[in-house]
């Protein structure tokens, strides 16, 4: 009787977005906060590579850790890693001063790629996305029109964009308009 319920990210991507915008399947995501003076010890104990500086990200296996605040990190990895991570955090709780909150379902992620990607993001995001100012490996929390996003660059023309679940259709709507207006497919 007890069966897994169906997952529904409630995001629909119009065909015109194919190749430009892809929705990632559900990821494991944690919002991690670590008391700055315990960062090194925590890295050692957890084997989670916390970048030392805001705007930097680390990549370990398929696990990405973004540093988006002085003591704030977002850890993104596959679903399979969730249980081991949850156990690990439980073990470390009390030994180190930190907080780990599961936000796997809070966000949805899009992979944005293609030659026009920076222009498409700049429809709503005011940051300078030139390679000089936003190099591969940079991450940040910012804004897309009135929706908060987390943006990180994975390649010259490849970004990952994270946003809260209910803001996703709003942002996708802008991408659809952009693709329609600029490709006319």
């Amino acid at each position: 009787m007890l069966s897994e319920l169906k997952i529904d990210q409630a995001v629909e991507l119009a065909p015109i977005l194919t190749g430009e915008v892809d929705l990632l399947p559900v990821q494991t995501r944690y919002s991690l906060r670590v008391k700055p003076k315990e960062r090194c010890a925590f890295i050692e104990a957890s084997n989670i590579d916390l970048p030392a500086q805001i705007g930097k990200m680390s990549v370990q296996y398929d696990r990405v850790v973004l540093c988006i605040g002085p003591d704030e990190y977002i850890l993104i990895c596959s679903l399979a890693e969730r249980e081991p991570l949850a156990r690990k955090f439980e073990e470390l709780m009390g030994k180190y001063i930190f907080s780990a909150t599961d936000i796997s379902h809070r966000n949805v992620s899009f992979i944005l790629s293609g030659e026009q990607t920076t222009n498409m993001i700049n429809v709503g995001c005011p940051l300078d996305l030139s390679l000089e100012n936003f190099p591969v490996g940079k991450c940040t929390r910012t804004i897309f029109e009135s929706a908060e996003i987390i943006l990180f660059r994975m390649g010259k023309t490849k970004f990952q964009l994270e946003t809260w679940r209910s803001f996703a259709p709003f942002i996708v709507g802008y991408f659809e308009k952009y693709c329609l207006q600029n490709r006319g497919k």
């Binding site: 209910s166 803001f167 259709p169 709507g173």
Partner: peptide, 18 residues
């Protein structure tokens, strides 16, 4: 500048909205 229709402002929907 294109902020019309559904792009005018965010309408947040819950998981059960559909």
């Amino acid at each position: 500048g294109g902020k019309d229709g559904h792009s005018f402002h965010v309408i947040r929907k819950t998981p059960m909205d559909g």
